[in-house]
Design a protein around this nucleic acid. Structure first.
Lengths: 142, 142
DNA sequence: ATCTAATACTTAGAAGTCTAACCATTTACG
DNA sequence: CGTAAATGGTTAGACTTCTAAGTATTAGAT
């Protein structure tokens, strides 16, 4: 197995295992991953956030974000608010219940991050992040 | 943003971008990612491979693998073969068409790997893979 | 002012993923 | 040997994701 093979397998497998591990920690909150990722971005964004902007932040298609927001709205965690300056646009805001949930999500994600990454030197993490970000730039350059 | 935050975001985003980039390169082959990943593992495995074993290799649930194999079988790329030693078990084998497809998939994946990772020193890749594999081990240890 | 192009959100449908539950078969144990 | 537990594959349903196509609105050009 070449180093490239090994690297791409490690990337894929680690990302997947991370996601599944976090899913398990958040399962009892009753919100899916797509849900809490979206909630987190809404909470962290200052000012109005449109559905399309949220989809970009979460890196999914606009169509995907529609049903995610539908479910969150139905669960009473977010609201759609019509924009006053552009009638095509709807903003997404957290409800108080959504704020509470975000607090829990953040605490658990932080905890898991500490549990796992706390065993690795910060310089190594920084260097790995550098390389991964470099790869992102390479992927984005056709 | 802490280095841990930065790292976990980089992991998630890089893995996702890699996957989407590879998807784009393989799109015209008419087989999905789940399909060609499964085909690759079948091709690379010596001897009989059961559905459950394949699911483990691909890291999905057995139930997920059922429909993936259904679709590949329907496309004439794999066959289910009953096991002679255990009546519960079905083995999955590639058809000749499946073998041909695997050759194409491998060539393109290799090409993409070279295109992207060819710009990065192998020592850096090896070191990153080490760290990622270390993280996998940490995730697996509850 | 009018028309075309672009944008924002929505719907539909196929594929992919998981959990839970099920049936048939095999294994383990008393 | 008989029974309980474990295993392998399957089905059902909710969620997730994408592409394609559609409607309403806005931006830009003439």
């Amino acid at each position: 197995m070449s180093v490239e093979d090994r690297f791409s397998a490690a990337l894929h497998n680690t990302a997947r295992m991370w996601r599944l591990a976090l899913d398990r920690r958040l399962r009892d909150l009753g919100v899916s991953q797509a849900g809490w990722v979206s909630i987190a971005y809404i909470a962290k964004t200052q000012g109005p956030l449109s559905q399309g902007e949220l989809a970009n932040l979460v890196q999914v298609e606009a169509a995907t974000m529609v049903s995610t927001i539908d479910r969150l709205e139905k669960a009473g965690l977010v609201l759609r608010v019509a924009s006053e300056s552009d009638r095509r646009v709807k903003h997404v805001v957290l409800t108080p219940a959504g704020e509470v949930l975000y607090g829990k999500v953040r605490a658990r994600a932080d905890e898991m991050r500490r549990d796992i990454l706390g065993h690795i030197e910060p310089e190594k993490l920084a260097m790995t992040a550098d390389i991964l970000e470099n790869i992102q730039a390479l992927i984005e350059t056709p």
